[in-house]
Computed example of a mutant assay.
Amino acid sequence: MLEQSMAPPHSKILIADDHPLFRDALQQVVDQAFPDAAVLEASTLDEAMIIAAHDDLDLLLLDINMPGMNGFNGLIALRNAVPATPIVVVSADEERETIQQALTLGAAGFIPKSMAKASMVQGLHEVISGKVYMPVDLSAPLTRGQMMIDDDFQQGYAALTGQQRRVLEMLVLGKSNKVIAFELDIAESTVKAHVSAILRKLRVNSRTQAVLNASKMLGTVRAMPSL
């Protein structure tokens, strides 16, 4: 029998999923994992953002395919909105790359929708206790297809300065220009200049494109020396 998690008293948990039946299923999982928690619901990213802005959430369960998410952009937006709240991605997409990307972008866990209820409960217990939960071993070697990296993007990354690489990795983690400036002890205008240089060197047209492409290759590029 699974032990009940040490969830905060009167904790608030948001279930953000556009399918009512699956929200009900997740409600049952949350009720079993955290019997005293108050459960809030959202069916779009906009609704989730509004709730996150007005409620002190202890946990957020997020479907990355609900309306407004635009891929992982919704996860990044919520990560910026509630940086102290652990976000667990709940998805029907069980591809290893998807799981790795979600965790790279700041998710505290990834739960496949096909997972058994008891395993979901265990996963939520681990996240609420401060751990990162994933259903597969991401330390296992990548397949040949997963290791393929766009040559132009890799060459562009190699041309980044050490500071630009640090800024890019912080962008991948979903941090805003203001937060990056504070953590690196530089002016926000300097961060913006770094971002512009990063986009130019990586040959991408937007910050989001840079983040998504970089997150796919972080497992290999972190080993490359800074210039």
Rank of each mutant, 00 (worst) to 15 (best):
S5E: 10
V30C: 04
T98G: 07
P67H: 05
Q28A: 13
I87D: 12
R203K: 15
L227P: 15
F182D: 14
R79M: 02
R79N: 01
A84C: 01
Q100H: 09
A210P: 00
R144T: 14
Q163Y: 03
D18Y: 07
L218W: 00
M66I: 09
L171T: 06
S189H: 03
T104M: 07
A181T: 01
I180A: 10
R203I: 08
R79G: 01
I186C: 10
G123H: 05
Q32W: 07
T190W: 00
D150W: 02
V132T: 15
A197T: 12
G162W: 01
M224R: 03
D58T: 02
D58M: 00
T190K: 00
Q164H: 08
R165T: 02
T161H: 07
E41C: 08
T161P: 06
F182I: 06
V121I: 15
R79I: 00
K216Q: 14
G123L: 04
D185G: 02
V132E: 14
E97S: 14
S196E: 11
Q28C: 12
I111Q: 10
V90I: 08
P135C: 13
M217G: 09
P20A: 10
L45S: 13
G174A: 08
P86M: 08
P83K: 03
S91M: 09
E94T: 13
A159F: 03
R96I: 08
Q27P: 00
E126T: 12
D56M: 07
H10R: 13
R200Q: 12
A37D: 02
A77N: 11
A158W: 03
V127H: 14
N205Y: 10
I64W: 06
P141Q: 05
G68N: 11
Q122P: 00
V204Q: 01
F182T: 11
V121H: 08
I180P: 03
M49Q: 07
I76L: 14
K178A: 15
S206Y: 01
P83S: 10
R203C: 12
G123E: 12
I149C: 09
R166G: 02
I50N: 14
A158T: 07
I186R: 07
A77M: 10
G219M: 02
A38F: 05
E41K: 05
N65L: 04
M170E: 14
N177R: 00
L62H: 09
K216D: 14
L173Q: 15
S215Y: 02
D55R: 06
F22P: 09
L103W: 07
K131D: 15
A116G: 08
A52F: 05
I13P: 04
V204I: 08
M49R: 01
R96E: 09
V195H: 02
I198N: 01
S215L: 04
